[in-house]
Design a protein around this nucleic acid. Structure first.
Length: 105
RNA sequence: CGGGUCGGCCAGACGGUCGCGUCGUGCGCCUUCGGGCGUACGCCGAGGAACGUCCGGGCUCCACAGAGCAGGGCGGUGGGUAACGCCCACCCGGAGUGAUCCGCGAGAAAGUGCAACAGAGAGUAGACCGCCUCCGUCGUCCUUCGGGAUGGCGGCGGUAAGGGUGAAACGGUGGUGUAAGAGACCACCAGGGGUCCGAGCGAUCGGAUCCGCUGGGUAAACCUCGCCUGGAGCAAGGUCAGACAGACGCCGAUGAGGCUGCUCGCCGAGGCGUCGGGUAGACCGCUGGAGGGCUGCGGCAACGCAUCCCCGAGAGAGAUGGCCGUCCGGUCGGAGAGAUCCGACCGACAGAACCCGGCGUAUCGGCCGGCCCGUUCG
């Protein structure tokens, strides 16, 4: 997702879940619709290089979920300060724990 | 070999695999025939600082980009450059045995201002103690009775040698001189100024001679002098397509506005505000440029010129990530007499958004070279 209006709608009306790396907002859609992801990485997370790294890693996790058959949700992920220091393994575990049950039933 | 100093360069390497972005090609689907979407393959895809946005330019628009003042910037000299507040060389001053480093390097003798505390006095200097003449007064001693010597107290003055204060007290040392003193005068030394000679493009340097001239700091205080300087910025600006709906108020050829402050000058017919409505699409600008490299020539150098060769991100809220293997570098632990082997961890700072030239700042480490000092050997 890239449109500001989509972000606003999902953050406002979506179901919230949290972990050490991020706040995750999610809206249920039809099972046949593809999963869509958006990322919010504020300056509190770090400088430009760290923000890019966090966004890319989250995108890699999202792709693995889609590859595993995830569908039917719009998801906005807001990275928390410290997510750049969590490391790849922790970040991936955090996200899978919340998103796998919802998207790949 | 040890220590130091200056400069240049690199920014982990290779491979596999799952992915991302631009472009090209093929295929499929859709099409209002402009193209769009999907997919496969191929090429390419962040930095030395891409950063901070502190200077300087190109480019674009604002009259034709103009004039003056104000404002702002710069400040040894000469050169380099498109330009600079940058770079190079040199000069001066300071630090260092030295290589070398440091200086926001014009003017303080045009004027105004400022300087805590201490101190008598801080810029037209200044008498607290001290030193000295003179006057008054009170003593002591001597006397040839005219006076002389000496001391205390008070007073008018003189004095920058000595003490003391201070970051700094109006040249220094020695002498002449004097009541005591003083560049008042003299010798030497230090500084300043004038004139002349020599070296250098110049800043400046060396020398001769005259003048007793000795007049501290601060200009990142005002100021003076010289030089430079219009404004806004790629959301600049332009082309195309598309949507809607205007209403009211104020100003305006006696000149709105363009255009930071003022004056002039030029262009010049719409401008501003409130409410309401609509759209936030595509393309150009957009990356081949003051570009990089080898060699040669000129120059101490910065740099310039010439031949040849090489250029492969471009954007739209914005593409480089995950995993694995081998090697490289560093740190730690273990084994070994040693060469070495095994294991763990780490590999910085940081992400293009119109483009260049600088500056400043961040940075794990590594490589190369010049020069200096010390030591040893020949």
């Amino acid at each position: 997702m890239v449109k500001p209006s989509d972000f606003r709608a999902i953050v406002r009306r979506g179901r919230r879940a949290s972990c050490a790396s991020a706040l995750i907002y999610r809206i249920e859609r039809d099972r046949s619709d593809p999963a869509r992801f958006g990322f919010i990485v504020s300056k509190a997370v770090g400088n430009a290089v760290e923000r890019n790294l966090v966004r890319r890693r989250m995108r890699a996790v999202a792709r693995s979920i889609v590859d595993a058959g995830g569908t039917g949700s719009d998801v906005v992920i807001r990275a928390l300060p410290g997510s750049a220091q969590r490391g790849w393994n922790s970040l991936a575990a955090d996200m899978h724990a919340i998103l796998d049950p919802a998207l790949t039933r």
